[in-house]
Design a protein around this nucleic acid. Structure first.
Lengths: 250, 250
DNA sequence: CGGACCCTTGACGACTTTCAACGTGTGTGG
DNA sequence: CCACACACGTTGAAAGTCGTCAAGGGTCCG
């Protein structure tokens, strides 16, 4: 299912026939814009699981969009501990924060085998200067990155571990539904418990215990990285989300 | 001192003679760009302390830059509790995250009487499409917003209250030094303890206790919103910052 | 003078962290 | 093919920290 989708992506050569075109929010929207970029966007890299798309401190020569495979971004704190900054699903632009200093503030790693689209800065600027609506899309993409970060902070503002886990899962569920355009109850987590723990600023033991508690309470079915949402209403209530937020499949 | 700087800003009429021009990173850099914007940037509003520049949910018609006075942005969680997302010093662009949905995801409030420069979206796009280097500056500004958010998340990744307070103060000190272009030991906090607590995802009692602990340990001198850094090295060590990071007065 | 707001401090309980042990699955090398 | 190491996930017990509830002092302002 997911496999065949990904492998079909592996084959594609240009953005004009991108399977993810409709959800490729970040930069490419209109066909003519795609043609403008076509010559430069082409570089697409296969990233093996666990390896880096770019590393913290690298000079920014391009931005990236995963076309298949989830990525994580993380910074190495001064004490050597990695702090997961975000998880990035196909179609999301990453690396924008590097525009500030010219260097990436975080490393981007593939959680699973990924196909990543590389957008050279020069091409980005060239197209943006030629096409105002593309430029607007670029700003939208940057705004979207910022919005995701704000969601992350709101997530961390929840004090209880169960609340954070619940909100995290609600987010993962919504992203899964947005990708499949169908209501889901099963979530596949592409990251391990330590990554979740880091993202939520918790210990991995605490994450594990939260999963178990939610399982014992009949809210979740937990089997490693496969989580089934058994009681969506209760999950939303724990996450303090306005009960049963309508899934937006736009 | 600070008063006269602010009051001088109150008088100014256009960006070309902006006192903060050199540190006005977000949008305006080159004189000719300023001239391009001059006609549209002029609208400048005086914001009384405690009132809003814009509110969560408002439609985005303009972005904003404080020219004098610190602002805070906060979102109202579903439970009605406000979560402080950021503190914004003069020269920092705010509102970028609204580019995503077209509506502000947070409210922006003045912590002290502020003078805020309003940049209509239309003008922003017009100038950006005419001037590639301005467009680059805009992206830089967006990246800078993202970078600040990442710093915030790193701040929240510290588990101990003292560590968060210390890192918060280090940041405030650096921003103060960047603004005055001189080494400082005294920090004036424009926000109250509750705002700090919300920003750090702590209780205001916990914030208070942390300040007291750091005072008792001889690291700080605390007098309400005036904090003197007595032992910068120790403060940095508590914040887990690479000891004595050179103040960048660039 | 009274009230509202802000800041501080104390005591208690709840939660997370820490340290530790154990089970499982996977991949490597004998 | 099996043994082993290793990463990952789970669970337990103890200790430490933060949140909650409560009270008090300070300042500003009507």
């Amino acid at each position: 299912m997911q496999r065949s989708l990904i492998s079909s992506l592996m084959e594609q050569r240009s953005c004009t026939d991108c399977v993810l075109k409709p959800m490729c929010r970040p930069a490419i929207v209109r066909p003519d814009e795609m043609e403008l970029l076509a010559g430069s966007v082409l570089p697409r890299r296969q990233i093996p699981a666990g390896t880096a798309v770019y590393r913290q401190g690298d000079q920014v020569r391009a931005l990236f969009v995963s076309q298949g495979g989830v990525l994580k971004t993380e910074t190495l704190g001064v004490d050597g501990q990695a702090q997961v900054i975000g998880f990035h699903f196909p179609g999301e632009l990453i690396g924008v924060e590097a525009f500030d200093s010219g260097r990436f503030r975080a490393s981007a790693l593939a959680l699973e085998p990924a196909s990543v689209c590389e957008i050279p800065i020069a091409a980005l600027e060239r197209v943006a200067s030629q096409d105002p609506s593309f430029q607007r899309q670029l700003m939208r993409a940057a705004g979207s990155c910022l919005a995701h970060q704000q969601d992350h902070i709101e997530l961390l503002s929840l004090r209880q571990a169960d609340e954070r886990i619940a909100l995290f899962l609600v987010g993962m569920l919504e992203r899964t539904e947005a990708a499949t355009r169908a209501e889901q109850t099963l979530i596949h987590l592409p990251m391990n418990r330590s990554d979740i723990a880091s993202y939520l600023c918790l210990n991995n033991e605490t994450v594990s215990r939260s999963f178990s508690r939610l399982r014992d309470d009949g809210v979740l079915g937990v089997n490693g990285r496969h989580v089934r949402v058994l009681d969506r209403g209760r999950l939303a209530r724990i996450a303090k989300v306005s009960d049963m937020e309508q899934p937006r499949l736009a």
